[in-house]
């Protein structure tokens, strides 16, 4: 006998997000618009994002400059659109590399088990104590601030999470009867991994990746804001915020637009990630 705590999922506040499907749809439509703008970027920007025009600095929005200009007289709108390429491109690359590194290591250590597994996992446990942000700062600090170093440092930390998740699932599945049955019937290890284990890890990894994309974007923009990521004059959103900082008392638009851009991109990935997690019923790791 249990008390059923009712959990109706209807939301009636502004955006109507009824359930996980609505979250995913909402996130996907945001994302589609963003990607569309990003891809079309070079064709729709009214101005060169890099060309400074000191006579037009801190201009208000006009036909030529839809969102006005920054402290160097550069078109904010063009910089935002082109900056999306940098942010989304880097993030995509980082998450892709992380998945490519994390999954195989997790599969292999989980499947083989034994000493290799325990040694790797001890190391991984140790690394897990390192905050990725701090590590990224360190690498950026020693090797010099640049986008490449930033990417390396995020990948260096992020793969661990994927390895742990994948390994956990593999260990759970490895001892189930169907895997034993496949072994007995003469499947090779490679085939077992590919045919039986790989499909099991797809949805958790998908959810993890969707939620991570948001986090990676936030890390990149934070580091760029600190001046440790994208270097001027590159139009990266975090860096744009940093540029606008001295002027934001008088021209708050300089920081509002890039911030909103980051917010909406991260929000759409979070909507997709959380929607997928509820839909695929993946537990938090």
């Amino acid at each position: 006998m249990k008390i059923n705590v009712q959990m109706p999922k209807a939301i009636k506040l502004g955006i109507k997000i009824k359930n996980e499907n609505h979250m995913i749809i909402c996130g996907l439509s945001f994302l589609t618009v963003i990607i569309f703008i990003t891809l079309l970027g070079p064709f729709i920007v009214p101005n060169d994002p890099l060309s400074a025009n000191m006579s037009e600095r801190l201009a208000s929005p006009s036909v030529t400059y839809p969102l006005g200009t920054d402290h160097m007289g550069r078109c904010i709108f063009s910089r935002l659109v082109i900056g999306a390429q940098a942010t989304l491109g880097i993030t995509g690359l980082v998450v892709a590399s992380v998945v490519m590194i994390g999954i195989p290591i997790g599969l292999v250590t989980g499947y083989i088990g034994g000493r290799i597994d325990s040694v790797i996992m001890r190391l991984v446990d140790g690394l897990l104590a390192l905050p990725e942000f701090i590590l990224a700062i360190t690498i950026a600090g020693f090797l010099g601030p640049s986008l490449i170093n930033l990417m390396i440092s995020i990948v260096f930390v992020k793969w661990i999470g994927y390895t742990r998740v994948v390994r956990g699932i593999v260990i759970l599945e490895r001892n189930k009867d169907y895997v034993s049955a496949a072994k007995v019937s003469g499947s090779s290890n490679w085939k077992i991994i590919r045919r039986h284990l790989l499909p099991q890890i797809i949805s958790p990894v998908l959810v993890l990746a969707a939620l991570d994309i948001g986090k990676v974007i936030l890390i990149i923009s934070s580091l760029s804001y600190l001046g440790l990521g994208a270097q001027p004059p590159a139009p990266e959103w975090g860096a744009m915020l940093n540029d606008g900082r001295p002027y934001f008392q008088t021209v708050p638009e300089l920081m509002i637009y890039p911030g909103l851009a980051i917010f909406f991109v991260v929000l759409s990935f979070n909507l997709i990630g959380e929607g997928l997690r509820d839909k695929l019923d993946v537990k938090r790791h």
Partner: peptide, 15 residues
């Protein structure tokens, strides 16, 4: 029967 007992206690779930 258990439901009857829960009703006696006034602890029926809100549904």
């Amino acid at each position: 029967k258990s439901l009857t007992a829960t009703a006696l206690l006034g602890l029926l779930p809100s549904s």
